[in-house]
């Protein structure tokens, strides 16, 4: 199996990885870099549990090949908190009780962060649309949507 040597940035760190052609970004993160915060819920682009940011865009990492990420800037759930301070979306989802089993949470948080980066003042419909690909079987979503609303407010107050 041919291995490809790729270099990329993951959560602000420079990484060099040898990956087989068929390896997905999800597999690379979990198996090569031991970043297991990103979850595998379907491996088919249908659940959003594997969502990470690639160059600022929220993508399903199970649908992206690792080799495509040469030179990319990847952010996973492990990269959201800075110096031990939680990202406003992380803090807000805790405050609103939007975490139950927590399996969808990493993907939700990344989708929410990507949304707030491109649209700091999203409407409720914007939030619903941004999270529509992130399935959650536990919470019923309401507290998650509220958490993103709060995070947007908080972020605005900070800036």
């Amino acid at each position: 199996m041919a291995l490809h040597h790729i270099t990329l940035t993951v959560n602000g760190e420079f990484e060099q990885v040898d990956v087989p052609s068929q390896m997905t970004l999800l597999q690379m993160l979990r198996d090569k870099l031991a970043l297991t915060g990103t979850k595998n819920g379907c491996n088919a682009g249908e659940c959003g549990a594997c969502t990470v940011m690639v160059d600022g865009e929220a993508v399903n990492s199970c649908m992206v090949l690792a080799v495509e990420c040469q030179g990319a800037n990847v952010v996973t759930v492990e990269g959201l908190a800075k110096d031990g301070v939680l990202d406003p979306v992380q803090q807000a989802i805790i405050n609103h009780g939007g975490v139950q089993c927590g399996f969808c949470t990493p993907g939700m948080l990344i989708s929410a962060r990507a949304l707030l980066n491109r649209n700091p003042e999203p409407s409720e419909d914007d939030i619903r649309a941004a999270l529509v690909g992130n399935l959650c079987r536990c919470t019923g979503y309401v507290r998650i949507i509220e958490a993103v609303q709060e995070a947007a407010k908080r972020q605005k107050a900070l800036n």
Partner: peptide, 21 residues
Amino acid sequence: DSVTRVDAKEKVIGAALFSDD
């Protein structure tokens, strides 16, 4: 009292370990 879940923080930072991890 509506205390915060004891597992909330590790779940939001991606540190909580599930079987596949």
